[in-house]
């Protein structure tokens, strides 16, 4: 569905200053996949998406989307993709249903078919009651659903969603994903999305592509990425008695090191920390071993990794802490 080779995009930002926003992205997406593209602001996610949707031309490299080259046959690509950008696709002065009918006409539907399709989508996305409202009078969540509806009018086999849930409250976010999920189940649509919400990517996507500094730094299922790059972490403390002090912790650390896939075992006072292969299985095993050895464990916690841990392991930075993310200028290398 998507094949790119060494795709790059440079922006001229001033005299003799070029920002390399995307530096050689090779992405392959098969039909029916749901791929989430993750990365900090300015990593090149949106720039990549804009190249794939024919909005901007790549500086170098090639991209074939839905069977057509984005530079040579942009019209063919545009016919086959749905695009929900970061802004609002519907014009604010327009009525909800009018915009959907117009979108149908743009994609070659006759008047009757366009109206029918508009009503279908209004129903699917729960907008029927708002059909004659002005777009400007809709709430953020309603407008976002309309954006998605606009992207679906021509039943595209490939749908691009650029931060579709940013600014929505949790209920509307959940709603929107419900729609996307149902859509995929019913029509086998390929979906490529970017999101700021790591939990969304985790829950929704079968495949996560992490982009940093304009390059793909990881590409796998969320579970595989977490197992490979972050792993489950267990943290235990031992009961301290007057006679043994924190000696139990040393024994516990030795036991932990024997767990399958154990690494980075750290003991600090009464506290033992370790990364293990399969946390939910390893923790009870360790507790049993401790009991047999007569070590009294006071507390035991299991931390399962998030995609943020994956990003941290890959880049040394967190996606979550906005303050920790370098500024745009610092992140994108400036070349003369």
């Amino acid at each position: 569905m998507i094949h790119t080779t060494a795709l790059t995009k440079e922006f001229v930002v001033g005299r003799q200053q070029t920002v390399r926003a995307v530096r050689g992205i090779g992405l392959h997406v098969d039909p029916g996949e749901l791929v989430a593209v993750l990365g900090p602001n300015g990593a090149g996610k949106t720039t990549t998406m804009r190249m794939l949707t024919t909005l901007i031309t790549p500086t170098s490299g090639t991209a074939t989307v839905a069977g057509h080259d984005v530079v040579r046959e942009p019209d063919q690509v545009r016919r086959r993709i749905g695009y929900v950008g970061q802004g609002n696709g519907a014009g604010h002065a327009h009525r909800v249903r009018d915009e959907l009918v117009t979108q149908g006409a743009i994609h070659g539907l006759n008047r009757r078919a366009a109206r029918r399709r508009a009503d279908e989508l209004l129903d699917t996305l729960g907008l029927t009651d708002l059909a004659t409202r002005r777009v400007a009078d809709l709430s953020g969540g309603q407008r976002r659903r309309l954006d998605v509806a606009l992207g679906l009018v021509h039943r595209p086999p490939l749908l691009f969603l650029d931060e579709p849930t940013t600014g929505l409250d949790p209920q509307h976010r959940a709603n929107l994903w419900d729609h996307v999920r149902r859509l995929r189940a019913a029509h086998d649509v390929t979906v490529v999305l970017t999101t700021h919400y790591l939990d969304e990517a985790d829950a929704m996507a079968e495949r996560v592509v992490i982009v940093d500094h304009g390059e793909i730094v990881a590409d796998d299922s969320a579970a595989a990425l977490k197992a490979k790059l972050a792993g489950d972490r267990i943290v235990l403390t031992v009961g301290v008695t007057a006679s043994t002090g924190t000696d139990g912790a040393a024994g516990l650390a030795r036991l932990a090191a024997r767990l399958p896939g154990a690494r980075d075992v750290v003991r600090q006072g009464d506290r033992v920390e370790a990364y293990v292969g399969n946390g939910p299985a390893a923790l009870p095993e360790l507790l049993r071993a401790a009991a047999t050895a007569g070590i009294r464990v006071a507390t035991a916690c299991l931390y399962r990794p998030t995609l943020d841990d994956v990003f941290l392991a890959l880049t040394g930075r967190s996606l979550r802490e906005e303050g920790g993310v370098p500024t745009e200028a610092a992140r994108t290398e400036v070349v003369a």
Binding site: T53, R78, G85, G87, N88, G89, A90, H92, I106
Partner: peptide, 12 residues
């Protein structure tokens, strides 16, 4: 600014 123009650009 709203994005409506962008939506039109990604159509044939």
């Amino acid at each position: 600014q709203t994005g409506a123009h962008e939506r039109m650009l990604v159509t044939p």
